[in-house]
């Protein structure tokens, strides 16, 4: 029951990312990168050296239907708790 990476359950992927820089995709068009220090079964996370990217998609004024611009806002946070219910995806970003 072993795949190439020796992962038996999805949480193993997260456990192996402890103290590593991870990429987190959240609800509300938000993304985080930061160093993972803790998680639990809800996917509550504690990250340090966090950079948050917020994608703000806006309809172009007077433009054709469906034409949008994506405004990107970034901010940095030192130590952050992330509530698990907003998490969509977690990935160790180094080996993309």
């Amino acid at each position: 029951m072993d795949t190439s990476s020796g992962i038996q359950e999805p949480f193993d992927l997260i456990r192996l990312s402890l103290s590593e820089k991870v990429f987190v995709k959240l609800r509300g068009d938000r993304e985080l990168t930061g160093v993972l220090h803790a998680y639990d079964g809800h996917m509550n996370l504690i990250l340090s050296d966090v950079e948050e990217t917020i994608m703000l998609v806006e309809q172009v004024e007077g433009g054709p239907e469906g034409q949008t611009t994506v405004n990107v806002a970034k901010r940095k946070m030192n130590m952050l708790f992330v509530r698990g219910d907003g998490v969509i995806l977690v990935s160790p970003p180094s080996r993309t």
């Binding site: 030192n78 130590m79 952050l80 708790f81 992330v82 509530r83």
Partner: peptide, 8 residues
Amino acid sequence: VRYVQLPA
């Protein structure tokens, strides 16, 4: 709650 910023 979405985030809590903690004292590092």
